[in-house]
Every structure is written in C-alpha cells, then in structure tokens.
Design a binder for these strands. Structure first.
Lengths: 223, 223
DNA sequence: GAGTGGTCTAGACCACGAG
DNA sequence: TCGTGGTCTAGACCACTCA
C-alpha cells in the first residue's frame, strides 16, 4: 500500500510532467498545499522532498517551491566535466598536510606537504559541482589539470552518499539530497600517484558516464 | 549552526566508530533514545536516518536498530560485480515489448519483442543488487552475459537517485536510501545495440569503480 | 512586517517480529 | 500479547526573502 506522501508526490509529479505546472512556476505554499491535500505540513513536506530528490522541484527558503526547468544536467565523462562551456568557476588554493584518507589515496607519509585546489562550478546562480584536487607539494607541482590529468592511468571510484553539512552549504543543496561522490586517483607510468581528485555532484543535476572499449571477443572467454 | 538531529547523529556516530557500540549490537529503542537525548521521536528518527544513509546502522521493523558490521561493500568494476563469489543469485526471465526508455536505449521500434533477464544477488539474508537486462528477441539472443558483454563497446551511465517503491521492496531497503543507478548499453562493432542493463545498487553497500588508461601524454594537449 | 520554508514538539495509530 | 519501528497529526518557533 503506497504511503500518503508517496501518493501526493505522484499527483504533483504528473501535474509537472503533463505541463499543468510549468517550468519556473511557483507551487502553492506548503500550508496551502497541505490543506488542499488534507494532510499535515510534515506529510506534505515529505512529498516535496521526494520531488526534490528527483530534481523536479527546487526549494528556496523564504520564497517558495519552484518547478525546475528541463534539467540541464552536468555529465562527468571519463574524467571530464561537460558542458565545460558556460560554467563559472571559482577557485581557491590552500596548502596543508596529508591526513586521514589522503595518506592512503596519495600513498604518501602522514603530514606530507600538499596543495589543495578547490573548484566550484556554477551555472547561473546555482552551484553545480565541487572539486577538490590534492597534489603532493614535493615534486614541484604545476597547476593540476582540473578536468583530466595527463596521467598514465586514472581510477574513478563512485559512490552515492549524503553531503557533509559543509558540502551542502557550499553547493546550496539540502542536506538530504544525495550526491555522487567521485574519487579519482591518477598515477603515472611508474605507479606514483600524481593527484587525487574528490568530486561532489548533486544527484539532481549531475551524472557520470564511462565508455569502455572491449578487446575483440575471444571465443568462450566469458560465461 | 548544526541542527539538533545532526548533533545527535554525530554523537552516535562516534560511539559506533570508537567501538562503544559494537557491530551487531542493538541500539536502545527509539523512544528510549529520544528521552535520553531529550528530543522528540521524529527528531531522533531523523538522526538515525542519517546514520542509516551512511551505512552505519540497519533498521529492522519490529526488532530494532542494529549496528552494521564492517561493511562488505559490493563493487561494480567496469561491467563486473565483485566479489562474485559467495553471492546467491535469483533469476527471472520475462518476455515483453519495448516501451518507454527501452525504445531509445535499445534503438528499436516501439513494441519490439524483448526478453528481460532479472537478477537479484544476495549476501546472506540481505539483497545486494538488482540487475535487469533487456535483449531484443529478434536476433535469437543467447543467454546474455550478466557481468559483462563481449561487446565492442559499453557505455555506463551512472546516477544517484531514490529507489522506486518496487525497487525498495525488492532490495529490502528504505525508500529514502539513495541507490546508484547504472545503465549500461553494449553495442557491437556495427553500432547495433546488443543489450541494455539496468543495475540498482544500494548506496550503503555498493560502489562503482572505473579504470581508465590514457594514451601517452602529448605535449600541450590538455589545458 | 508579511509570507515563506526549516526545524522541532508531543503525542496518536498502524504494521511488523517474536514469544 | 507486547515491544518495536513506520507513518501521520496539529500545531510551535525560528530564519530567510522581499516589499
């Protein structure tokens, strides 16, 4: 049996996809919607939370809930963020020392001097992606390649999780909206780690895409 | 300022990671925890929802909340699910006709006869992954390669989203726990689509991993 | 200041699991 | 039958946005 907020979400979803509610339009206020559906405000907010997670609406504190335009999704493709046109990027560079997961990611001793490059891409007003790249300061690092390293090999580890409170505020997203977390480790031909990149992409506006070319199939190779 | 349920989640988190609460142990009941933290039950449940999304606890209706063991995460690696040992797999085969997204994915006309292969992997009691593979029935499909097709090229599109209610019940996960959704389209040398695979992996127990080998860096190729 | 969403309260009732 | 988590109610108060 579908729960109440699921039913309400389904109704609003069809209103959006059928065009009864158009892109950019403001929904009724949450108290009004609650009385309309004859539910309490927390229940109605649960319904809206589902639509938000699907990227159908955008909640703006103090203003209202708005129907999202046809999504202009950002795609992370094999180490590259596209479209890379039309993106405003803000940068910050910090020096720090290796700690925590960075030690094993970069395969360096603890407290190794590192440089952190922080990138925040925007599309118009809304932030779209957060990238942090860590480079050992030892071997005289040039500016790292934000999009893709010229490394021999890159390894992308992808998981879905909730954002940390800091990430949520930097990306201006709700703390309950899942993000794609991509950890890319680039190594050179000798196996040395050149850089580690941590990307955080809001799930309502970003995908990742990987294209694999397989060697010619050998007969009976695979079950 | 951190919200109340964030603070409570942080406290419980440290109790788990420091070992004050051990794997498999049951937490106090939610009403008891609520009185202990001097909050209402919805607030306490918000805190537990965060821990659940992080994979630290497991909620079992009618029994209690349990500390998860050291996570045995499943990794989807370039078209292969590992570990593929120790997995129970249940299968179902269905014949249907192309509709909706399947039409564009498989590049076939609407209502083309298809075969759906459904795989549900378990690890012990708990389901771990849900895979649906669609193959056009036209070119006499052999049993599809579950793990990886012998195709010329595979394209993996990855996103994070909430599960559909059906997926949530099949995987026995909460409807609020995000999943990694992987859509893999395999094509042969002529560009014909061999199969489309839809994987659903609970975010608290699965990752995806891709390894890219770059061609030797050409000087000044990349900015 | 008026209206909005964000968070929280203190309960109620139902569905599930185990004895 | 009893204790558990799942869902929902009907409010309250605060923070933010805009006029």
């Amino acid at each position: 049996m579908p729960s109440l907020h699921q039913t309400i979400a389904a109704d609003l979803r069809t209103q959006i996809t059928t065009g009864h509610l158009k892109a950019g339009e403001r929904l009724l206020s949450e108290p009004r919607l609650a009385t309309h559906y004859k539910v309490s405000t927390p229940t109605l907010r649960n319904a809206l939370a589902l639509l938000q997670a699907e990227g159908l609406i955008e909640k703006i504190h103090g203003k209202g809930n708005y129907v999202r335009g046809p999504l202009r999704r950002l795609t992370y493709t094999g180490g590259r963020l596209i479209p890379d046109t039309d993106l405003h990027v803000t940068t910050r560079t910090t020096n720090l020392r290796a700690h925590g997961d960075l030690i094993s990611l970069l395969k360096v001793p603890a407290r190794t001097p590192l440089t952190e490059f922080l990138y925040l891409t925007h599309q118009g007003e809304s932030p779209h992606s957060l990238t942090r790249i860590y480079v050992p300061r030892d071997p005289a690092p040039a500016k790292p390649s934000w999009h893709r390293s010229a490394a021999e090999q890159s390894q992308d580890q992808i998981s879905a999780r909730l954002p940390t409170p800091e990430e949520a505020s930097m990306l201006r997203i709700s703390a309950t909206l899942a993000v794609l977390s991509i950890t890319r480790v680039s190594t050179d031909t000798t196996g040395r780690v050149l850089e580690a990149a941590l990307l955080v992409l809001p799930s309502d506006r970003a995908d990742a895409l990987f294209i694999t070319r397989n060697p010619p199939a050998e007969k009976g190779q695979e079950g």
